[in-house]
Amino acid sequence: MNKRTWLSFPYVLWIIGFTVIPLIVIFRYAFTTGDGGFTLENILTIFDPIHFKALVFSLEIAVGCTLICIILSYPLVLAMRRLKMGKSGVALFIIILPMWMNSILRIMAWQMILSPNGILNLILEKLGMKPLSIANTATAIMIGVVYDYLPYMILPVYNAVAEINEDIIEAAKDLGAGSITTFFKVILPLSMPGLLSGIVMVFVPSMTSFVVSDVLGGGKLQLVGNIIEQEFTKSANWNLGSGLSVFLMVFVMISMAFTLKNDVDGKESTVW
């Protein structure tokens, strides 16, 4: 045995105490009834119409949020690539800055902006336009999650794009590729590793979030996360909450496995 193996003990303890045991507990709750008997009820309850509707809505929010983040990231990242070293550092700092602020605070701020008498409608009124009722809609939730998770897309995509050698982009132009062709044939495929980790880092938390929908959805629009939260708090039905959690975890793992598998395949297939 290696002499330094004992150094890993704290981490092993950590993993057992905070990952393995909680997982076992959750799985135990998920597959048992209140009095301890085995059941699949808690898992299958996802097909209950209300739960299933929340799952579909969560999926819509997660997919939409991920796509919007991708579309917003690339123009910004490409612009930052053109900046000189120091300036791109400042730009990156400004982008990360909101991440260091309390997340509840950020979402509350959006509530203030979007509410019927909020800042947005105040501005629209001054401009002589009709007020919008965005608060408590899916749009409000979407704005919230995009704002929350955008930096998690920008950072890995920026790292991947910044790594692409300028020579390679010039070579594409040299061979007759315009800006759009260069982007789709060279920049996008070469930044794929960063894009994929960005997708994982945005899709998973937006799929499972509940705070954003709680505040910006006004409690009327429910994501799976909200239902799970309610099972644990209001209904005190830990078995049902755990069942839904296990389903959600497996669901996310499978969808991410598909995303990452495409990456491995992509390396061997042609880009054309």
């Binding site: 050698n165 020579d167 390679i168 010039e170 070579a171 594409a172 132009k173 040299d174 061979l175 007759g176 590729a177 315009g178 060279v186 495929p189 070469l190 390396k267 880009v271």
Partner: peptide, 19 residues
């Protein structure tokens, strides 16, 4: 712009598309 010139370049660092 370079893509509109019938001129091609061989770069010092080869600059092949790695993908």
């Amino acid at each position: 712009s370079p893509d509109k010139r019938n001129i091609n370049t061989v770069f010092q660092k080869y600059s092949l598309f790695p993908h």
